[in-house]
Design a protein around this nucleic acid. Structure first.
Lengths: 132, 132
DNA sequence: CGCATACTTTACGTTAACGTAAACTTCCCC
DNA sequence: GGGGAAGTTTACGTTAACGTAAAGTATGCG
């Protein structure tokens, strides 16, 4: 009944549409930690989630270092007060950045709509040359 | 009454918090076309807007090539039907990408909120060790 | 058995987006 | 007229994020 618990590097590469080189590179950067069966890498569902988070970060323009930081935020290691406060600070910074991105997206969306409208008008003008 | 109509490279660099090298690099990439007074570059309000668009693109993770394409979308050059249709296609692709980014942002926002909550709990637990 | 397929390591190559340094001109100011 | 301050060109350097190639190992299959 349970979902498959391990993945090969090729499976993940196909699923997320990246190369195996990319996944190995992420391991080099300590972003994923696959187990080994002999020489061969064996990925866990946790590794898969990590990959997903990295790729989502990429879509938002985050560097790997930033994505690593974000991922670490979800598993706070040090449990002392100052580290927690510092973490909350970083979280807030990310929220601010996301809100800026939201504003940027809305503006860009509007401009794309306008550009599309101008296209439409240009097209109907081409089909209707007599219309003033 | 009218706003200042020209800008020096230093002014723009300060306003947008980039180096002059960056602005000259964008010129090299044919993203801005400042006039010249002698040797010195003189930027128009249009150049300033272009700069703004580039930097907004950067915040959304766009490459300079992508931003260039976006900017050109707002000033369609070729007025033949096929070009207009191709342009609309690109516009739609960008909209799809923006919508994906929106979903990514919402998911990430939620996760940041959760992480923040866990921080809060950990902090109150630190101040209230007796609470089970 | 031979061969294809998928995996591995090692290592050099590549592109984008600037950084940085050197050496020069212009303009303004006291 | 000497010296900042801001501008210029030219050119080599740097970092991130992989690409690409070579050479080897393991595994299933007809």
């Amino acid at each position: 009944m349970s979902k498959k618990q391990t993945y090969s590097i090729g499976e993940l590469a196909r699923e997320f549409d990246v190369t195996t080189r990319t996944i190995r590179f992420y391991e080099d950067q300590n972003l994923v930690n696959p187990a080994r069966r002999g020489q061969t890498r064996v990925y866990s569902p946790a590794d898969r989630v990590t990959l997903k988070l990295i790729l989502r970060g990429k879509r938002l323009g985050f560097s790997l270092a930033e994505s690593r930081e974000l991922i670490q935020m979800y598993q706070p290691s040090g449990d002392n007060r100052n580290q927690l406060l510092a973490l909350q600070d970083k979280i807030q910074q990310r929220r601010d950045q996301l809100n800026q991105q939201l504003r940027d997206i809305q503006a860009l969306h509007q401009e794309l709509d306008d550009a599309d409208q101008r296209c439409e008008h240009a097209l109907t003008a081409l089909e209707n040359p007599d219309h003033v």
